[in-house]
Design a protein around this nucleic acid. Structure first.
Length: 473
RNA sequence: GGCGCUAUCGUCUAACGGUUAGGACAGAGCCCUCUCAAGGCUUAAAUACGAGUUCGAUUCUCGUUAGCGCUACCA
Protein backbone atom coordinates (compact mmCIF):
# COMPACT_ATOMS: atom_id res chain seq x y z
CA UNK A 1 0.00 0.00 0.00
CA UNK A 2 1.90 3.03 -1.27
CA UNK A 3 0.67 6.42 -0.15
CA UNK A 4 2.78 9.48 -0.85
CA UNK A 5 2.14 13.17 -0.49
CA UNK A 6 3.34 16.50 -1.77
CA UNK A 7 2.87 19.09 0.95
CA UNK A 8 3.71 22.61 -0.16
CA UNK A 9 3.18 25.61 2.02
CA UNK A 10 1.53 28.40 0.05
CA UNK A 11 4.02 31.10 0.95
CA UNK A 12 5.47 31.64 -2.53
CA UNK A 13 4.74 30.50 -6.03
CA UNK A 14 5.43 26.94 -7.12
CA UNK A 15 9.12 26.79 -7.81
CA UNK A 16 11.20 24.34 -9.72
CA UNK A 17 12.43 22.48 -6.67
CA UNK A 18 8.93 21.96 -5.33
CA UNK A 19 7.82 20.87 -8.76
CA UNK A 20 10.53 18.24 -8.81
CA UNK A 21 9.45 16.99 -5.41
CA UNK A 22 5.90 16.66 -6.69
CA UNK A 23 7.12 14.87 -9.81
CA UNK A 24 9.24 12.36 -7.89
CA UNK A 25 6.35 11.63 -5.54
CA UNK A 26 4.00 11.30 -8.47
CA UNK A 27 6.37 9.02 -10.35
CA UNK A 28 6.83 6.88 -7.27
CA UNK A 29 3.08 6.60 -6.75
CA UNK A 30 2.34 5.80 -10.38
CA UNK A 31 5.23 3.37 -10.66
CA UNK A 32 3.95 1.43 -7.67
CA UNK A 33 0.25 1.78 -8.27
CA UNK A 34 -0.02 3.92 -5.16
CA UNK A 35 -1.94 6.99 -4.11
CA UNK A 36 -0.77 10.55 -4.71
CA UNK A 37 -1.94 13.04 -2.13
CA UNK A 38 -1.79 16.81 -2.40
CA UNK A 39 -1.83 18.43 0.99
CA UNK A 40 -1.56 22.16 1.45
CA UNK A 41 0.51 22.86 4.54
CA UNK A 42 -1.00 26.21 5.40
CA UNK A 43 -0.47 26.41 9.12
CA UNK A 44 1.50 29.62 8.88
CA UNK A 45 -1.46 31.96 8.52
CA UNK A 46 0.77 35.03 8.50
CA UNK A 47 2.61 34.08 5.34
CA UNK A 48 -0.01 32.20 3.35
CA UNK A 49 -1.34 33.87 0.25
CA UNK A 50 -4.06 33.03 -2.22
CA UNK A 51 -1.75 34.01 -5.08
CA UNK A 52 0.68 31.39 -3.96
CA UNK A 53 -2.01 28.75 -3.76
CA UNK A 54 -3.16 29.67 -7.26
CA UNK A 55 0.39 29.41 -8.53
CA UNK A 56 0.66 25.87 -7.17
CA UNK A 57 -2.51 24.75 -8.91
CA UNK A 58 -1.61 26.61 -12.07
CA UNK A 59 1.82 25.04 -12.22
CA UNK A 60 0.58 21.51 -11.60
CA UNK A 61 -2.19 21.94 -14.11
CA UNK A 62 0.27 23.04 -16.75
CA UNK A 63 2.52 20.07 -16.03
CA UNK A 64 -0.53 17.84 -16.30
CA UNK A 65 0.18 16.19 -12.99
CA UNK A 66 -2.80 14.93 -11.05
CA UNK A 67 -3.47 13.75 -7.52
CA UNK A 68 -5.89 11.32 -5.96
CA UNK A 69 -6.66 12.94 -2.63
CA UNK A 70 -6.60 16.54 -1.46
CA UNK A 71 -6.33 18.06 2.01
CA UNK A 72 -5.73 21.39 3.60
CA UNK A 73 -3.99 21.50 6.93
CA UNK A 74 -5.85 24.58 8.05
CA UNK A 75 -9.03 22.50 8.07
CA UNK A 76 -7.49 19.82 10.22
CA UNK A 77 -6.38 21.87 13.20
CA UNK A 78 -8.60 19.91 15.58
CA UNK A 79 -6.77 16.72 14.76
CA UNK A 80 -3.37 18.35 15.21
CA UNK A 81 -4.30 19.85 18.58
CA UNK A 82 -5.86 16.63 19.74
CA UNK A 83 -2.76 14.63 18.93
CA UNK A 84 -0.48 17.28 20.41
CA UNK A 85 -2.45 17.16 23.63
CA UNK A 86 -2.21 13.39 23.63
CA UNK A 87 1.54 13.71 23.49
CA UNK A 88 1.39 16.23 26.31
CA UNK A 89 -0.86 13.96 28.37
CA UNK A 90 1.48 11.04 27.86
CA UNK A 91 4.29 13.14 29.27
CA UNK A 92 6.30 13.29 26.03
CA UNK A 93 5.82 17.05 25.96
CA UNK A 94 5.53 19.90 28.44
CA UNK A 95 4.27 23.44 28.64
CA UNK A 96 6.89 26.15 28.34
CA UNK A 97 5.70 29.41 29.87
CA UNK A 98 8.89 31.30 29.03
CA UNK A 99 7.93 34.34 26.97
CA UNK A 100 9.29 34.30 23.46
CA UNK A 101 12.74 35.81 23.47
CA UNK A 102 13.15 39.16 21.81
CA UNK A 103 15.44 39.61 18.85
CA UNK A 104 18.32 40.52 21.12
CA UNK A 105 17.57 37.43 23.21
CA UNK A 106 20.63 35.80 24.58
CA UNK A 107 20.18 32.20 23.45
CA UNK A 108 23.40 32.31 21.45
CA UNK A 109 25.07 29.04 22.22
CA UNK A 110 23.17 25.81 21.85
CA UNK A 111 20.37 25.95 24.36
CA UNK A 112 18.22 22.89 24.06
CA UNK A 113 15.31 24.00 26.23
CA UNK A 114 14.33 26.62 28.75
CA UNK A 115 15.65 25.42 32.09
CA UNK A 116 13.02 24.77 34.71
CA UNK A 117 10.10 24.39 32.36
CA UNK A 118 10.73 20.70 31.76
CA UNK A 119 10.58 20.03 35.48
CA UNK A 120 7.37 21.90 36.19
CA UNK A 121 4.96 19.63 38.02
CA UNK A 122 1.81 18.62 36.20
CA UNK A 123 -0.24 20.43 38.83
CA UNK A 124 1.61 23.69 38.46
CA UNK A 125 1.58 23.43 34.71
CA UNK A 126 -2.18 22.87 34.71
CA UNK A 127 -2.72 25.68 37.18
CA UNK A 128 -0.74 28.24 35.23
CA UNK A 129 -2.38 27.18 31.98
CA UNK A 130 -5.80 27.47 33.58
CA UNK A 131 -4.85 30.92 34.86
CA UNK A 132 -4.42 31.99 31.25
CA UNK A 133 -0.67 32.26 31.19
CA UNK A 134 0.57 31.82 27.61
CA UNK A 135 2.72 28.83 26.79
CA UNK A 136 4.10 26.77 23.95
CA UNK A 137 4.03 23.01 24.08
CA UNK A 138 7.48 21.51 23.62
CA UNK A 139 8.54 17.99 22.93
CA UNK A 140 10.43 16.48 25.84
CA UNK A 141 13.42 14.99 24.03
CA UNK A 142 14.39 11.88 26.03
CA UNK A 143 18.04 12.70 26.59
CA UNK A 144 18.29 10.72 29.82
CA UNK A 145 16.68 7.49 28.69
CA UNK A 146 18.08 7.36 25.22
CA UNK A 147 21.37 7.92 23.45
CA UNK A 148 20.14 8.57 19.95
CA UNK A 149 17.36 8.50 17.37
CA UNK A 150 17.80 6.51 14.17
CA UNK A 151 16.10 5.79 10.92
CA UNK A 152 17.10 4.53 7.52
CA UNK A 153 16.63 6.93 4.67
CA UNK A 154 15.82 5.31 1.34
CA UNK A 155 18.26 7.64 -0.39
CA UNK A 156 20.83 8.62 2.25
CA UNK A 157 21.02 5.34 4.13
CA UNK A 158 21.20 4.83 7.90
CA UNK A 159 20.97 8.06 9.91
CA UNK A 160 21.59 8.58 13.58
CA UNK A 161 21.55 11.66 15.76
CA UNK A 162 22.33 11.96 19.45
CA UNK A 163 19.35 13.03 21.54
CA UNK A 164 21.79 15.43 23.19
CA UNK A 165 21.89 17.33 19.90
CA UNK A 166 18.14 17.59 19.44
CA UNK A 167 16.48 20.59 21.01
CA UNK A 168 13.07 20.57 22.68
CA UNK A 169 11.17 21.75 19.63
CA UNK A 170 7.71 23.30 19.75
CA UNK A 171 4.56 21.36 18.97
CA UNK A 172 1.95 24.03 19.69
CA UNK A 173 2.44 27.78 19.46
CA UNK A 174 1.20 30.05 22.22
CA UNK A 175 -1.73 30.82 19.93
CA UNK A 176 -2.63 27.16 20.06
CA UNK A 177 -1.81 26.74 16.39
CA UNK A 178 0.30 23.65 15.72
CA UNK A 179 3.79 24.06 14.33
CA UNK A 180 4.88 22.56 11.06
CA UNK A 181 6.43 19.54 12.75
CA UNK A 182 3.29 18.70 14.70
CA UNK A 183 0.81 19.31 11.90
CA UNK A 184 2.89 17.49 9.36
CA UNK A 185 3.39 14.37 11.45
CA UNK A 186 -0.19 14.32 12.68
CA UNK A 187 -1.41 14.41 9.11
CA UNK A 188 1.12 11.92 7.85
CA UNK A 189 0.01 9.53 10.57
CA UNK A 190 -3.68 10.16 10.04
CA UNK A 191 -3.45 9.88 6.26
CA UNK A 192 -1.36 6.73 6.63
CA UNK A 193 1.42 8.08 4.43
CA UNK A 194 3.76 5.21 3.61
CA UNK A 195 6.64 7.14 2.05
CA UNK A 196 7.67 10.69 2.68
CA UNK A 197 9.67 11.93 -0.29
CA UNK A 198 10.87 15.49 0.25
CA UNK A 199 13.83 17.83 0.05
CA UNK A 200 17.05 17.09 1.87
CA UNK A 201 16.56 20.25 3.91
CA UNK A 202 14.28 18.09 6.04
CA UNK A 203 16.82 15.34 6.63
CA UNK A 204 17.79 16.58 10.09
CA UNK A 205 14.19 17.43 10.94
CA UNK A 206 13.37 13.80 10.44
CA UNK A 207 14.78 12.89 13.84
CA UNK A 208 12.18 15.14 15.42
CA UNK A 209 9.49 13.62 13.29
CA UNK A 210 10.62 10.16 14.24
CA UNK A 211 10.18 11.18 17.87
CA UNK A 212 6.68 12.52 17.22
CA UNK A 213 5.58 9.34 15.50
CA UNK A 214 6.90 7.34 18.41
CA UNK A 215 5.05 9.51 20.91
CA UNK A 216 1.93 9.09 18.84
CA UNK A 217 2.40 5.35 19.06
CA UNK A 218 2.34 4.83 15.31
CA UNK A 219 4.86 3.32 12.98
CA UNK A 220 6.87 6.00 11.21
CA UNK A 221 6.61 6.16 7.43
CA UNK A 222 9.57 5.46 5.19
CA UNK A 223 11.66 8.48 4.36
CA UNK A 224 13.42 9.37 1.14
CA UNK A 225 15.18 12.70 0.95
CA UNK A 226 16.05 14.34 -2.31
CA UNK A 227 19.22 16.32 -3.03
CA UNK A 228 18.57 20.03 -3.27
CA UNK A 229 18.42 22.10 -6.41
CA UNK A 230 20.76 25.04 -6.22
CA UNK A 231 21.65 28.11 -8.30
CA UNK A 232 24.97 28.52 -10.13
CA UNK A 233 26.16 30.75 -7.28
CA UNK A 234 25.76 27.81 -4.95
CA UNK A 235 22.83 29.28 -3.09
CA UNK A 236 19.44 27.75 -2.63
CA UNK A 237 17.06 28.94 -5.33
CA UNK A 238 15.07 31.93 -4.24
CA UNK A 239 12.94 34.53 -5.89
CA UNK A 240 14.61 37.38 -4.08
CA UNK A 241 18.04 36.37 -5.20
CA UNK A 242 17.47 34.70 -8.54
CA UNK A 243 14.27 36.22 -9.82
CA UNK A 244 11.44 34.59 -11.71
CA UNK A 245 13.68 31.91 -13.25
CA UNK A 246 12.86 29.70 -10.30
CA UNK A 247 9.13 29.77 -10.96
CA UNK A 248 7.41 27.03 -12.94
CA UNK A 249 5.15 29.49 -14.70
CA UNK A 250 8.18 31.32 -16.06
CA UNK A 251 9.07 28.18 -17.99
CA UNK A 252 5.53 27.89 -19.25
CA UNK A 253 5.39 31.50 -20.40
CA UNK A 254 8.76 31.26 -22.10
CA UNK A 255 7.49 28.43 -24.25
CA UNK A 256 8.59 25.21 -22.66
CA UNK A 257 6.60 22.10 -23.36
CA UNK A 258 5.24 20.71 -20.09
CA UNK A 259 6.89 17.38 -20.60
CA UNK A 260 10.24 18.91 -21.53
CA UNK A 261 10.17 20.60 -18.16
CA UNK A 262 9.27 17.37 -16.39
CA UNK A 263 11.94 15.45 -18.27
CA UNK A 264 14.60 18.03 -17.49
CA UNK A 265 13.77 18.21 -13.83
CA UNK A 266 13.85 14.42 -13.51
CA UNK A 267 17.45 14.46 -14.68
CA UNK A 268 18.36 16.67 -11.73
CA UNK A 269 19.22 14.37 -8.86
CA UNK A 270 18.05 11.20 -10.52
CA UNK A 271 19.42 9.03 -13.29
CA UNK A 272 18.10 6.05 -15.18
CA UNK A 273 21.74 4.83 -15.15
CA UNK A 274 21.71 3.84 -18.80
CA UNK A 275 22.62 7.10 -20.56
CA UNK A 276 19.06 7.75 -21.69
CA UNK A 277 18.06 11.38 -21.42
CA UNK A 278 14.95 11.86 -23.45
CA UNK A 279 12.23 9.89 -21.76
CA UNK A 280 8.50 9.87 -22.26
CA UNK A 281 6.21 10.11 -19.29
CA UNK A 282 5.45 6.43 -19.62
CA UNK A 283 9.13 5.54 -19.67
CA UNK A 284 9.72 7.68 -16.62
CA UNK A 285 6.98 6.00 -14.61
CA UNK A 286 8.18 2.61 -15.75
CA UNK A 287 11.78 3.04 -14.66
CA UNK A 288 11.62 5.50 -11.78
CA UNK A 289 13.01 4.13 -8.55
CA UNK A 290 14.41 5.69 -5.42
CA UNK A 291 17.65 3.77 -6.00
CA UNK A 292 18.25 6.05 -8.97
CA UNK A 293 18.18 9.14 -6.79
CA UNK A 294 21.61 10.47 -5.92
CA UNK A 295 22.82 12.38 -2.91
CA UNK A 296 24.62 15.51 -3.99
CA UNK A 297 22.93 18.80 -4.75
CA UNK A 298 22.33 19.63 -8.40
CA UNK A 299 23.05 23.02 -9.91
CA UNK A 300 20.59 24.48 -12.34
CA UNK A 301 22.75 26.20 -14.87
CA UNK A 302 21.49 29.65 -15.74
CA UNK A 303 22.82 33.17 -16.11
CA UNK A 304 21.29 36.62 -16.33
CA UNK A 305 21.72 36.55 -20.08
CA UNK A 306 20.43 33.01 -20.41
CA UNK A 307 17.80 32.33 -17.78
CA UNK A 308 17.22 28.67 -18.65
CA UNK A 309 19.50 25.70 -18.29
CA UNK A 310 20.85 24.85 -21.76
CA UNK A 311 19.93 21.24 -21.28
CA UNK A 312 16.33 22.13 -20.57
CA UNK A 313 16.30 24.21 -23.72
CA UNK A 314 17.86 21.42 -25.73
CA UNK A 315 15.32 18.90 -24.45
CA UNK A 316 12.56 21.31 -25.36
CA UNK A 317 13.94 21.86 -28.86
CA UNK A 318 14.31 18.10 -29.32
CA UNK A 319 10.70 17.54 -28.41
CA UNK A 320 9.49 20.37 -30.61
CA UNK A 321 11.42 18.93 -33.55
CA UNK A 322 10.06 15.45 -33.16
CA UNK A 323 6.45 16.15 -32.32
CA UNK A 324 3.59 15.83 -34.82
CA UNK A 325 2.85 19.12 -36.59
CA UNK A 326 -0.77 19.22 -35.49
CA UNK A 327 0.31 18.92 -31.90
CA UNK A 328 3.00 21.53 -32.33
CA UNK A 329 0.49 23.93 -33.87
CA UNK A 330 -1.79 23.46 -30.88
CA UNK A 331 1.08 24.19 -28.48
CA UNK A 332 2.01 27.28 -30.46
CA UNK A 333 -1.51 28.69 -30.39
CA UNK A 334 -1.23 30.65 -27.10
CA UNK A 335 1.85 32.47 -28.32
CA UNK A 336 0.46 34.28 -31.35
CA UNK A 337 -2.80 35.98 -32.26
CA UNK A 338 -3.41 33.81 -35.27
CA UNK A 339 -5.92 31.07 -36.05
CA UNK A 340 -4.94 27.44 -35.72
CA UNK A 341 -5.08 26.55 -39.45
CA UNK A 342 -2.64 29.35 -40.22
CA UNK A 343 -0.31 28.22 -37.45
CA UNK A 344 -0.48 24.72 -38.85
CA UNK A 345 0.86 26.12 -42.15
CA UNK A 346 3.65 27.98 -40.42
CA UNK A 347 4.65 25.14 -38.11
CA UNK A 348 6.77 23.17 -40.60
CA UNK A 349 8.73 26.31 -41.40
CA UNK A 350 9.81 26.87 -37.84
CA UNK A 351 9.74 23.41 -36.29
CA UNK A 352 13.47 22.91 -36.32
CA UNK A 353 14.29 26.58 -35.85
CA UNK A 354 12.75 27.31 -32.49
CA UNK A 355 13.97 26.11 -29.14
CA UNK A 356 11.14 27.70 -27.22
CA UNK A 357 7.56 27.97 -28.42
CA UNK A 358 7.56 31.73 -27.87
CA UNK A 359 10.25 32.11 -30.50
CA UNK A 360 7.58 31.76 -33.16
CA UNK A 361 7.03 35.47 -32.66
CA UNK A 362 10.53 36.37 -33.78
CA UNK A 363 11.36 33.53 -36.14
CA UNK A 364 8.16 33.96 -38.14
CA UNK A 365 7.68 37.68 -37.58
CA UNK A 366 7.51 38.43 -41.30
CA UNK A 367 4.37 36.34 -41.53
CA UNK A 368 2.51 38.09 -38.76
CA UNK A 369 3.11 41.68 -39.76
CA UNK A 370 1.74 43.18 -42.93
CA UNK A 371 4.59 45.64 -43.17
CA UNK A 372 8.16 44.45 -42.89
CA UNK A 373 10.40 46.12 -40.35
CA UNK A 374 12.68 48.57 -42.20
CA UNK A 375 15.90 47.01 -43.42
CA UNK A 376 19.02 48.30 -45.11
CA UNK A 377 19.05 48.09 -48.91
CA UNK A 378 22.55 46.65 -48.68
CA UNK A 379 21.02 43.50 -47.21
CA UNK A 380 19.54 42.78 -50.63
CA UNK A 381 22.93 42.49 -52.26
CA UNK A 382 24.00 38.86 -52.61
CA UNK A 383 27.35 37.31 -51.74
CA UNK A 384 30.00 38.24 -54.30
CA UNK A 385 27.47 40.39 -56.10
CA UNK A 386 26.49 44.01 -56.41
CA UNK A 387 23.42 46.22 -56.47
CA UNK A 388 22.94 45.56 -60.15
CA UNK A 389 22.84 41.84 -59.57
CA UNK A 390 20.30 42.31 -56.78
CA UNK A 391 18.18 44.48 -59.03
CA UNK A 392 18.15 42.04 -61.90
CA UNK A 393 17.49 39.10 -59.58
CA UNK A 394 14.50 40.87 -58.11
CA UNK A 395 13.22 41.96 -61.49
CA UNK A 396 13.46 38.40 -62.72
CA UNK A 397 11.83 37.08 -59.55
CA UNK A 398 8.93 39.46 -59.90
CA UNK A 399 8.32 38.16 -63.36
CA UNK A 400 8.70 34.52 -62.43
CA UNK A 401 6.55 34.68 -59.31
CA UNK A 402 3.73 36.33 -61.19
CA UNK A 403 3.13 33.14 -63.11
CA UNK A 404 4.93 30.28 -61.36
CA UNK A 405 3.08 27.42 -59.75
CA UNK A 406 3.06 28.54 -56.13
CA UNK A 407 4.29 25.46 -54.34
CA UNK A 408 7.70 24.16 -53.34
CA UNK A 409 8.54 22.24 -56.48
CA UNK A 410 7.11 24.78 -58.86
CA UNK A 411 9.01 27.65 -57.24
CA UNK A 412 12.19 25.65 -56.97
CA UNK A 413 12.19 24.83 -60.66
CA UNK A 414 11.18 28.29 -61.86
CA UNK A 415 13.60 30.23 -59.66
CA UNK A 416 16.56 28.00 -60.42
CA UNK A 417 15.84 28.37 -64.11
CA UNK A 418 15.75 32.13 -63.58
CA UNK A 419 19.16 32.05 -61.91
CA UNK A 420 20.61 30.12 -64.78
CA UNK A 421 19.22 32.60 -67.23
CA UNK A 422 20.85 35.47 -65.32
CA UNK A 423 24.05 33.46 -65.06
CA UNK A 424 24.20 33.77 -61.29
CA UNK A 425 24.46 31.11 -58.62
CA UNK A 426 21.23 29.90 -57.10
CA UNK A 427 22.20 31.42 -53.77
CA UNK A 428 22.80 34.79 -55.38
CA UNK A 429 19.34 34.64 -56.86
CA UNK A 430 17.65 33.49 -53.67
CA UNK A 431 19.23 35.85 -51.20
CA UNK A 432 17.75 39.08 -52.55
CA UNK A 433 14.35 37.44 -52.73
CA UNK A 434 14.66 36.16 -49.18
CA UNK A 435 15.54 39.57 -47.84
CA UNK A 436 12.80 41.18 -49.90
CA UNK A 437 10.08 38.93 -48.50
CA UNK A 438 11.42 38.30 -44.98
CA UNK A 439 13.23 41.54 -44.29
CA UNK A 440 16.40 39.79 -43.20
CA UNK A 441 19.02 37.31 -44.35
CA UNK A 442 18.35 34.56 -41.85
CA UNK A 443 15.01 32.98 -42.45
CA UNK A 444 13.33 29.64 -43.11
CA UNK A 445 13.92 27.96 -46.49
CA UNK A 446 12.80 30.13 -49.36
CA UNK A 447 10.29 28.09 -51.35
CA UNK A 448 8.20 27.00 -48.40
CA UNK A 449 8.28 30.51 -47.08
CA UNK A 450 7.08 31.99 -50.36
CA UNK A 451 4.33 29.42 -50.50
CA UNK A 452 3.06 30.22 -47.03
CA UNK A 453 3.25 33.96 -47.66
CA UNK A 454 1.32 33.68 -50.92
CA UNK A 455 1.85 35.20 -54.32
CA UNK A 456 0.32 38.57 -53.60
CA UNK A 457 2.37 39.35 -50.52
CA UNK A 458 5.56 38.14 -52.17
CA UNK A 459 5.06 40.30 -55.24
CA UNK A 460 4.29 43.43 -53.32
CA UNK A 461 7.30 42.95 -51.03
CA UNK A 462 9.59 42.36 -53.99
CA UNK A 463 8.26 45.50 -55.64
CA UNK A 464 8.97 47.40 -52.44
CA UNK A 465 12.49 46.00 -52.35
CA UNK A 466 13.11 47.14 -55.92
CA UNK A 467 12.01 50.64 -55.01
CA UNK A 468 14.27 50.60 -51.98
CA UNK A 469 17.19 49.50 -54.11
CA UNK A 470 16.55 52.28 -56.61
CA UNK A 471 16.25 54.94 -53.89
CA UNK A 472 19.49 53.97 -52.29
CA UNK A 473 21.42 53.92 -55.56
C1' G B 1 29.67 27.90 17.12
C1' G B 2 27.05 22.78 17.43
C1' C B 3 25.01 18.75 14.61
C1' G B 4 24.24 16.51 9.91
C1' C B 5 24.71 15.74 4.52
C1' U B 6 27.71 16.00 0.11
C1' A B 7 32.30 16.09 -3.10
C1' U B 8 33.82 12.66 -11.05
C1' C B 9 34.73 17.24 -17.24
C1' G B 10 31.93 24.39 -17.09
C1' U B 11 26.75 21.85 -16.07
C1' C B 12 23.61 17.18 -15.48
C1' U B 13 25.44 12.41 -14.76
C1' A B 14 27.66 6.75 -15.57
C1' A B 15 31.33 3.35 -13.88
C1' C B 16 30.41 -5.63 -8.83
C1' G B 17 37.74 -2.68 -5.85
C1' G B 18 40.62 -4.02 -12.03
C1' U B 19 37.67 0.72 -18.01
C1' U B 20 42.22 4.24 -22.68
C1' A B 21 37.11 7.07 -16.28
C1' G B 22 31.59 6.45 -20.41
C1' G B 23 27.22 9.51 -22.06
C1' A B 24 24.51 14.14 -22.64
C1' C B 25 24.26 19.59 -22.78
C1' A B 26 27.16 23.77 -23.59
C1' G B 27 32.16 24.99 -26.39
C1' A B 28 35.69 24.38 -30.74
C1' G B 29 36.61 22.47 -35.78
C1' C B 30 35.12 20.04 -40.37
C1' C B 31 31.20 18.24 -43.74
C1' C B 32 26.28 18.96 -45.83
C1' U B 33 23.57 23.28 -47.64
C1' C B 34 19.59 28.78 -51.16
C1' U B 35 20.59 31.94 -45.72
C1' C B 36 19.35 30.29 -40.72
C1' A B 37 18.53 25.92 -38.59
C1' A B 38 18.55 20.69 -38.38
C1' G B 39 21.78 16.55 -39.34
C1' G B 40 26.69 13.84 -39.73
C1' C B 41 31.84 13.47 -38.22
C1' U B 42 35.96 15.08 -35.15
C1' U B 43 37.90 17.50 -30.80
C1' A B 44 39.00 19.62 -25.95
C1' A B 45 37.41 18.93 -20.85
C1' A B 46 36.91 15.57 -14.52
C1' U B 47 37.82 11.57 -9.99
C1' A B 48 38.95 18.40 -4.18
C1' C B 49 43.54 17.39 -1.04
C1' G B 50 46.37 14.02 2.29
C1' A B 51 47.01 9.46 4.65
C1' G B 52 45.48 4.27 5.37
C1' U B 53 43.52 -0.80 3.82
C1' U B 54 44.61 -3.69 -0.78
C1' C B 55 48.49 -6.98 -5.68
C1' G B 56 45.24 -2.96 -7.30
C1' A B 57 41.09 2.67 -4.83
C1' U B 58 36.69 7.26 -8.49
C1' U B 59 34.81 3.17 -5.49
C1' C B 60 36.27 1.11 1.42
C1' U B 61 38.29 3.81 6.23
C1' C B 62 40.25 8.20 8.62
C1' G B 63 41.69 13.27 8.41
C1' U B 64 41.76 18.13 5.91
C1' U B 65 39.33 21.56 2.89
C1' A B 66 35.07 23.35 0.56
C1' G B 67 29.81 23.65 -0.33
C1' C B 68 25.02 22.96 1.43
C1' G B 69 21.29 21.94 5.22
C1' C B 70 19.30 22.10 10.23
C1' U B 71 20.03 24.63 14.72
C1' A B 72 12.47 29.58 15.32
C1' C B 73 6.08 30.03 18.80
C1' C B 74 8.92 29.45 9.28
C1' A B 75 7.88 25.47 6.48
Amino acid sequence: MFRVRFAPSPTGYLHIGSARTFIFNWLYARHNGGTMILRIDDTDVERNTQASLDSIFEGLKWLDLNWDEFYRQSERGDLHRKLANEILAKGHAYRDFTPAVTTEGEHSGGWLFNPGMRELSTEESERRAAAGEPFVVRYRVPRESRESVSFTDLVYGPQTKATADIEDFALLRSSGVPTYHMASCADDADLRISHIIRGQDHLTNTFKHQLIFEALGVEAPNFAHLPLLIAPDGAKLSKRKHGPVVSVTTYRDAGFLPHAFVNFVCLLGWSPKDDREKLTRQELTDIFTLEGVNRSNATINFTDADPFDPKAVWLNAEMIRTMPLDELAAQLLPFVAVELPRIRQIAPLIQERIKLLSEIKTVADFIFHDALAPYDAAELIPQKGDAAMAASALASAEEILATATFNHDGLDKALRAGAELLKVKAGQMFQPIRVAVCGRKNAPPLFETLEVLGREVCLSRIAAARRLLKESA
